[in-house]
């Protein structure tokens, strides 16, 4: 195995700015209609940004839609279903949107009692994330440098490369795995990182876990 990568891994960071759309929902039907008409930047906001915003919590709240249905509308069963949508397992925001739409449509077909609505001021507000991808000064050409960078980058960087990366080509693959595979033909790293679940770690915990995976990998290579 070669020791230095021909192309360095350049760490970037993701920053977001929140934009209000002026649209709101007071019941399930309005929530469904709002989601149906949402573009990627709105779906991203209520799923991915939400996850990152509360990254220090374990267990983390699942997504904005589930939180509102569960805690504000108090439709616990539906809230549970919406919370079970595993955001990071999807390869596109459109697919995530479809998953929510299907759950809400199924719910509306099944229920017979009158639709619950929230009082004024408690509506769900559809928001949009304006996403910025910004280069950082961190670059790595080998395993050791990579670990060093990982210790110092922000959690936004971690989130961008591990979870959000799966939404763009090559779909379903995080940036770290992709780099180790391309540069060092190391498929073991991909296997280990793709198994990581953001719902089981804080992003700080995740940072420690990836560093441990890489340290173990260095040790294995030394022993081989």
């Amino acid at each position: 195995m070669k020791l230095k990568a021909s192309e360095p891994f350049k760490f970037r960071t993701r920053l977001t700015l929140v934009q209000a759309t002026g649209r709101k929902a007071g019941n399930i039907m309005e929530l469904l209609e709002g989601i149906r008409e949402s573009d990627d930047s709105i779906i991203y906001h209520h799923t991915h940004r939400f996850l990152k915003q509360f990254h220090f919590l374990v267990p983390e709240p699942a997504n904005d839609f589930a939180y509102w249905v569960n805690n504000i509308l108090q439709e616990e069963k539906l809230g549970e279903e919406l919370a079970s949508v595993e955001i990071v397992r999807f390869n596109s925001l459109e697919a995530i949107k479809r998953a929510f739409v299907e759950i809400l449509e199924r719910h509306l077909k099944q229920v017979s009692e009158p639709m619950r609505a929230v009082s004024s001021g408690k509506e769900f507000h559809f928001l949009r994330s304006i996403r910025f991808s910004i280069p950082t000064s961190h670059q790595a050409r080998d395993y050791a440098e990579f670990i060093e960078c990982l210790r110092n980058v922000s959690v936004s960087t971690l989130y961008l490369h591990v979870f959000e990366a799966r939404l763009r080509p090559p779909y379903g693959v995080d940036d770290f795995s992709n780099w180790f595979l391309k540069q060092f033909n190391d498929a073991e790293i991909q296997k280990a990182i793709s198994r990581l679940d953001p719902y089981s770690y804080t992003l700080e915990g995740l940072r420690r876990r990836i560093i441990r995976i890489l340290e173990q990998r260095i040790q294995e290579m030394k022993n081989a």
């Binding site: 920053l15 700015l17 990627d40 930047s41 949009r128 304006i130 996403r131 910025f132 991808s133 910004i134």
Partner: peptide
């Protein structure tokens, strides 16, 4: 402060929803 600066970038970029610098 960061948000104010990002708003400046957003307006300079022509109000794109995804901005890669």
């Amino acid at each position: 402060l960061r948000d104010y600066l990002l708003i400046c970038l957003y307006l300079e970029s022509g109000k794109e929803t995804f901005i890669r610098l």
